[in-house]
Simulated assay, not measured.
Amino acid sequence: MHIPSRIATRLLLCCAVAAAPAFAFAQAAPAKPAVGAQMTPAATYGKLLSGMEKEFVDAAEAMPEDKFNFAPPTTMGDFKGVRSFGAQVKHVAQANWYFFGGDMSEADGKAKSDAIEKLTSKADIVQALKDSFKQAHTYIGGITNENAFVMTAHGTRGGMAAFGIAHMMDHYGQMVEYLRMNGIVPPASRGSM
């Protein structure tokens, strides 16, 4: 499988962050493991996922319903054909089922993706996002030292987890820009200004 260099770079950064025991998200302040402590793959990826989930869901909830279909106008740059804010959220919900769906069949994955694509209200889209994060936590909770890097049909469990989290970061960055274009400070930035 060929991974484009920008995605490979994000994947490596995600893995480097996952390996750093001193890394902690400000929103979740559980006891920090002692230097040299062994962390399980599930705990490492779970911590990263929880931090990303908090930022992503908070950002999705911060955009008002009447702005959920916002996409930058082409007068502001080359934005022709970009996803709207709501479409960014739906895309990540769909992708989470791909990255973290585990043994989900291709048919079930397509049905899940199609159902999410049909959603139109903010409440339904945000709920689909939250449901996809529940699935992601279940998947990551099953990663062990023994199975983290065993090849499966889609890649290794550890690789899929890292790629899935990196994918969220890409779309989170786009959502932050959309929020700011609408005069909304992203929730993750509100306490640090």
Results as ranks from 00 to 15, higher is better:
G183R: 03
F68M: 08
Q88V: 09
G183C: 07
H2I: 06
F56Y: 15
H154R: 14
D124E: 15
A123P: 01
A8V: 00
E117S: 14
G101C: 07
F68R: 04
A93K: 06
G141R: 04
T144F: 05
A107G: 11
Q38I: 10
F133Y: 15
A26W: 10
P41T: 02
P64A: 11
H137T: 10
Y45H: 09
P72C: 02
M160I: 01
A43Q: 14
Q135N: 13
L13A: 14
Y178W: 00
V57I: 14
A162H: 08
A42L: 08
K47T: 15
A93T: 05
K110E: 14
Y172R: 13
Y45N: 01
M52Y: 04
A128M: 06
K47A: 15
I7D: 11
G142Y: 02
T44L: 00
K32Q: 15
A18M: 09
A71G: 13
T152E: 14
G81F: 04
T138F: 00
R190S: 03
S192H: 08
W97E: 13
M168K: 11
P21W: 03
P30V: 07
E65P: 01
A18G: 15
G101W: 07
D114Q: 05
H91W: 04
N182D: 05
E53L: 03
A188V: 12
K54Q: 13
K47G: 15
F23A: 15
S84W: 02
D170N: 12
